[in-house]
Design a protein around this nucleic acid. Sequence first.
RNA 1: CGGGGUGUAGCACAGUCCGGUUAGUGUACCUGCUUUGGGAGCAGGGGGUCGCGAGUUCGAAUCCCGCCACCCCGACCA
Length: 493
Amino acid sequence: MAKELKELTSRAKDYSQWYQDLVIKADLAENSAVRGCMVIKPYGFAIWEKMQRQLDDMFKEAGHVNAYFPLFIPKSYLSREADHVEGFAKECAVVTHYRLKNDPEGSGLIVDPEAKLEEELVVRPTSETIIWSTYKNWIQSYRDLPILVNQWANVVRWEMRTRLFLRTTEFLWQEGHTAHATKEEAIAETEQMINVYAEFAEKYMAMPVVKGFKTESERFAGAEETYTIEALMQDGKALQSGTSHFLGQNFAKAFDVQFTDQNGKLEYVWATSWGVSTRLMGALIMSHSDDNGLVLPPKLAPYQVVIVPIYKNLEQLQRVDEKVKGIMERLKALGITVKYDNSDNKKPGWKFSEYELKGVPVRLAIGARDLENNTVEVARRDTLTKETLPMDGIENHIKKLLNEIQENIYKKAVDFRESQTREVNSYDEFKEEIEKGGFLLCHWDGTPETEALIKDETKATIRCIPLEGDKTPGKCMVTGKPSAQRVLFARAY
RNA sequence: CGGGGUGUAGCACAGUCCGGUUAGUGUACCUGCUUUGGGAGCAGGGGGUCGCGAGUUCGAAUCCCGCCACCCCGACCA
């Protein structure tokens, strides 16, 4: 057993390998029989549910409501918006038939050729088109606006290469789709939502992000402006963690969604869309984990505290059970989630390792010794330290400790990112530095040609044009042409 | 679709080059006893179409041919 852990540790340098082993061992997910899709196991799904609930609260706080739209999109819808079809056509799963039958030749089930669909259906890669074809019926007057709708759903993108959590064929996400009477209002919505995402990432996931615009070539297919939050993973690669798009009037025009404004004039509506996905779970894992397994921020941990009893016989266990009952009540009264693992088929040492692997922020161990002294052993996951404390008032200490852990994990991630972010001024230096990973802030002349050249030669992309920070103009590191501000480069997932 | 690799017990793998007892090891599982403050110990036990198909041979996990699946690297990707 110890050997297995050691192997895991020694592989930590090979991050992707380690990461895959880790999540499987940590009971988060496994690859299923279906190409590039994943089974999210109960513990992993509990983390996703925590994220969902928090995000949903934040959306509603900002005035949004939930709805649901169909999984299938008629092929013709997808082709209505030119950039959109360009962006998604290459990765769509298509339904062509609606029935199977027994092969008359006797080789089992086959697709019934007579059950061919008049028009093929696309399994949604995103829902803009079906939603806008619906909104057309919902919107006549400025009084119908704004529409602020979100949906929690699954989508399918048939990528050539998949990666657990980061790019699976099917993934779970939320997509907000809003309609507005004015351009200003739509832009304000787009900005509001990227701020919601950034707040969620930093306050709940304890993951610092850089907010910014995507360049034209990295923009969402059909958007006029894409805002993004970019995070840095521990292996030095960037991860796009959430996007919010200002869609202009592109979809309104493609689906003919017009409204009468206050002056009786017919206008196209202004649109936004925004989304985050189960990719965030990958981000969470890769931001904080160490060689002992997951490290979960207390605000997203399925349970914040685990209690492990230590006993020599059933009589002792019963005494610990009694004691724990009281502690659990007091913890729950403070809104802290607790799991008491008094299963008799695993030893304490096994449990310690198991809950570390699962990233439970705080572990309490209580044994005969503690019952005698009225103490409890408190171990924290982020620092892997433990201390023995008096039992009285332990619940208040734990409440404080959970906040401290949340802050400490965030601070650690910020420090790491700062240490991996640097300004680079020449292209030669850039080529050298990009090999080391991390974020590079550089001047760029703003042309797609230069961007493409850099990508070809170094595999680095412009993650975003940051909204905040240094706005001093300069000269492009490649062409020497003027640059408005430094932009953020990195190699990305 | 290109380049590389792997298919042997639930999982991880050895054995394949150089064919030869009843196919093995770790782990997991089952039973019993002892253990329980950092992934317990001992004893016993169950579990295999060696990816699939066809061939060579007295004899194939091993050699030849064909096929299939999966993984990694690239192309692709908001």
